[in-house]
Design a protein around this nucleic acid. Structure first.
Length: 644
DNA sequence: ACCATCCAGCATCTTACACG
DNA sequence: CGTGTAAGATGCTGGATGGT
């Protein structure tokens, strides 16, 4: 299509597509066409003209917000967790199906109108993923996913293809890749499509959040998409669940054709995701069975203390061991209490494994070493550390490392999201400041005083990178969302959640200040807010809080925030507990309750206003308790009539 | 007293990109 | 062109806090 265009027309076509995509949010060109257009241009004229950032965004992949978060399953590990617990879980989810748990990366295929797909990774926290422009060749083009549903699957590389790829890499004089899963993830994140992408496999396993059973989901995927679908088996009975799961796992291991790191055990009920809901980290409609990972033996050569924002964390340096294709040289020891519990000393021979095949962990001392592990002073500033509950804290506000860590924290994704500001750069900034401005004691807010010229003086920085960092600091300090501003105060215990709670309740910093100043008992007043307890209330009413706010407000502007007033009305603030089976999905009733300003409670107490239960004459524990404490029992139908 | 959730901290591998 | 930094992907641990 770009064959008969002049260079100017070709470039104009690309820029037009950029505008449509980023500004109008209504792409006219399909992703594939757009990519082809760019590729052709680069082939003919080079990449120079295209060296701009479309839409002013970062040069990364496009982001996509998942309508339903892509969370990972909670785990049940053989030999660690209770077997009775597994049976209990299975009973709650019954009927139950099992599937292989692929060791790859989760990718969701969102259908476009023409049946082509937009492939999206999990993303941090499973909420906002990246769109993968260069996915598997056979799935490009329309008609791949005609189901109309978002399909969730796993991308992985087989042992066979991994070996083949490494052979080819070495034949070209390149380094072979070490780790199968990271190789798969890395290949997909390349800007230019790698031919090795064709070695990846994609297998789908569910239609998240849809009103179907797992069997129906499988059926839909295999008949309306071109994706492969996982194998699946129904369990015969909860009591034989463990044997059935293990037999299934062993059989898959024996085949040794796909990389698996466990078995998915999930409810076979219709729309189970909706029925069972989520915890903060995991869906409740299933869990993953894991076999205990293999143990290795190594020697601890040293223990270094890693400083965080306040806490010192011990990390063991061990003789390198090869575990699952990765060379392990370090293992976190979490805190001094853990060192004590393990009886660890330097020179000790230890048992090490990878917790869930990722994090190296020392589990046991086999032979004691000779040198005791101690830490009395901060490895950065040399001031004595304070020990609280077996953990070491540096409370020296002038500690360089502490200031650098705060700067990196404020720059991190969840706070001000300053592109290009990491801990390394933060350390250089603190060092530079102390050298140049010996008279002015640095705090984390020095970050906002750096000009591009100053940044260019930092080691490893030149004009271009200094300009870039300066621009991202400036951009990030304007129109900050209120919850992020509150988190950026760097106060202990004040994070995302407290920020959101305060913002929703008060809407602005001025309002918070005013309410605290005017309340007769500000601490008691704050504690009445759900989610704020005595510690948080004390911090919020302290001098520290108001000083931090004043200081940060000098550098950062806050965007107007629409506070989420609890809806007023008869049922505002009332607590409803739901129990037992109901005609409609629970979420339906929960939505009704929340729309009326009420809250869902999990267990019955004197603070519960209503217990929603199908049989109001039930003698269940919850119903009994409700009668005891004077909570009103109502049926779901009554609830509906009441709130609608 | 117990449980759920939040906060803070952790390792490794891989790619992109700017620096020098 | 080699090197270092940044960022994204995977997911674990343990203490603190708040709610019941």
């Amino acid at each position: 299509m770009s064959q008969d265009l002049t260079r100017e027309e070709h470039l104009a076509a690309i820029k037009k597509a950029d505008r449509e995509y980023y500004e109008l949010d209504d792409p006219v060109l399909a992703d594939e066409e757009y990519d082809a257009l760019r590729r052709d241009y680069i082939d003919k004229y080079g990449a120079e003209d295209l060296n701009y950032v479309p839409g002013g965004a970062t040069g990364d992949f496009d982001k996509f917000t998942h309508p339903s978060p892509v969370t990972s399953l909670s785990k049940w590990t053989k030999g660690v967790d209770d077997e009775a617990d597994l049976v209990k879980k299975v009973e709650e989810l019954w009927p139950v199906v099992i599937q292989p748990k692929f060791d790859g990366l989760t990718v969701v295929a969102y259908p476009n109108a023409d049946g082509s797909c937009r492939f999206v990774t999990r993303g941090l926290g499973g909420r906002i993923g990246e769109v993968l422009p260069n996915f598997i060749r056979e799935y490009e083009g329309p008609g791949v996913n005609k189901s109309g549903y978002a399909v969730r699957g796993e991308v992985y590389i087989t042992q066979e293809n991994f070996a083949k790829m490494n052979e080819e890499l070495m034949a070209h004089g390149d380094e072979p890749m070490k780790n199968m899963r990271n190789a798969a993830a890395g290949l997909l994140r390349r800007k230019e499509r790698s031919p090795y992408v064709d070695y990846l496999s994609y297998v789908c396993y569910e239609l998240p959040g849809e009103d179907v059973t797992p069997q129906e989901a499988r059926q839909i995927i295999s008949s309306h998409t071109e994706f492969k679908v996982t194998s699946m088996q129904e369990l015969a009975s909860p009591n034989s669940a463990l044997e059935e799961i293990e037999a299934y796992y062993d059989a898959l291991k024996l085949q040794n054709t796909i990389p698996i790191d466990g078995i998915v055990v999930k409810s076979g009920q219709r729309n189970s995701l909706e029925k069972f809901g989520f915890t903060a980290h995991h869906p409740r409609n299933g869990f993953a069975y894991k076999a205990l990972s293999e143990k290795f033996v190594t020697v601890v050569r040293d223990v270094i203390w890693q400083m965080g924002r306040r806490k010192a964390t011990p990390v063991a340096i061990v003789d390198p061991v090869e575990i699952d294709g990765a060379t392990v040289t370090r293992a976190s020891l979490h805190n001094a209490a853990m060192i004590k519990e393990l009886g660890l000393s330097i020179g000790a021979t230890v048992e090490i494994h990878k917790a869930n095949e990722i994090i190296p962990q020392i589990t046991k001392v086999l032979e004691p070493g000779d040198t005791e592990i101690t830490l009395a002073v901060c490895p950065s500033c040399g001031e004595p550390l304070e020990e609280i509950n077996g953990q070491q804290f540096c409370n020296n506000p002038a500690c360089d490392e502490r200031i650098a860590q705060d700067i990196a924290f404020v720059g991190s994704k969840d706070v001000l999201n300053i592109d290009g500001l990491s801990i390394e750069t933060a350390r250089k900034m603190v060092a530079y400041w102390k050298e140049q401005y010996a008279a002015v004691k640095p705090t984390y807010t020095i970050l906002f005083s750096f000009t591009a010229e100053m940044l260019a003086k930092l080691e490893g920085f030149a004009e271009k990178s200094a300009e870039k960092l300066y621009n991202s600091i400036t951009a990030a300090s304007q129109d900050v969302e209120l919850p992020r501003f509150i988190k950026a105060l760097c106060l202990p215990g004040i994070g995302t959640d407290v920020g959101k709670i305060l913002a929703d309740r008060f809407g602005s910093i001025e309002e918070i200040n005013q309410v605290i100043a005017e309340a007769e008992e500000p601490q008691a007043m704050l504690q009445e807010i759900n989610g704020i307890g005595p510690k948080t209330a004390e911090m919020l009413t302290s001098n520290k809080f108001s000083m931090a706010v004043n200081m940060l407000q000098r550098h950062v502007t806050i965007a107007p925030y629409a506070k989420q007033e609890a809806p007023a009305g008869e049922y505002a603030g009332k607590v409803f507990v739901l129990t037992g089976k109901m005609a409609k999905p629970r979420s339906f009733y929960v939505e009704l309750i929340e729309a009326a300003g009420g809250k869902e409670g999990k267990s019955v107490s004197s603070k519960t206003d209503y217990l929603v239960i199908q049989d109001v004459n039930s003698t269940s524990a919850k119903a009994k308790k409700a009668r005891e404490v004077g909570t009103q029992l109502i049926s779901p139908e009554e609830l509906e009539n009441m709130l609608l």
